[in-house]
């Protein structure tokens, strides 16, 4: 018997894992988080509005599950082990423009962002949610999402050596 809801969720599992990994940074915990998300999604499937994006709905559930997990971890004193990101230490910020290195340093740049900036980067730039969808997932006003997203991108640009000019002013040097 085919179940489109289930098939669609399976199709989004890689995206859910990616978002989970960006939140908790430990592959095992990420998989647990996806598992909980899937369970909650099925428990609530009759509340899903099929005119909206399933992935946005799933991300919202996943993020709530993460908040809940951290809340419990904090009070129960259990540690969520954070796998150190080997990429972060191997990039030295010199002007090597190898694509691979650029990608690794972009990944490192994202990983070193504050959590609330990384969330918006993952949802909007990586998962291609709209500002409104991201705002609903994060339970934030759209304006807050936008200001975090702009800050996050300026920070990434800085780390990658993308010319940032002088934001909001007229003093850019214009060499390209």
């Amino acid at each position: 018997m085919s179940d489109k809801f289930a098939d669609d969720i399976i199709a989004f599992l890689p995206n859910l894992r990616r978002f989970a990994l960006s939140l908790c940074r430990a592959p095992d915990t990420a998989d647990d988080l996806v598992q909980v998300t899937v369970e909650r999604a099925f428990a609530a499937r009759h509340q899903f509005d099929p005119t909206t994006r399933l992935d946005a709905w799933l991300f919202r559930i996943l993020r709530n599950a993460w908040i809940d997990m951290t809340r419990r971890a904090r009070t129960r004193g259990t540690q969520i082990d954070i796998e150190d990101a080997p990429d972060a230490s191997t990039v030295d910020g010199t002007r090597i423009t190898e694509t691979a290195l650029m990608l690794r340093s972009a990944k490192a740049a994202i990983e070193t962002l504050p959590d609330n900036q990384r969330d918006v980067i993952m949802l909007i730039c990586v998962e291609e949610m709209s500002y409104k969808e991201a705002a609903e997932i994060l339970a934030l006003p759209v304006g807050t999402v936008m200001s975090r997203l702009a800050r996050a991108r300026l920070a990434i640009a800085n780390k990658l050596g993308i010319k940032t000019g002088e934001p909001r002013s007229s003093g850019s040097q214009g060499d390209s």
């Binding site: 289930a6 969720i9 399976i10 599992l13 890689p14 995206n15 894992r17 990616r18 990994l21 960006s22 998989d31 996806v34 598992q35 899937v38 369970e39 099925f42 650029m102 990608l103 690794r104 972009a106 990944k107 994202i110 980067i121 993952m122 909007i124 730039c125 990586v126 291609e128 991108r153 990434i156 640009a157 990658l160 993308i162």
Partner: peptide, 27 residues
Amino acid sequence: DTKAAAKEAMEPLLRQPVPDHLVETVR
């Protein structure tokens, strides 16, 4: 550029195999 860089940098994660148990859970 930052959007493109972020998207590209995170792309390889999508190609990681999903553990079977997750798919089985959904089923």
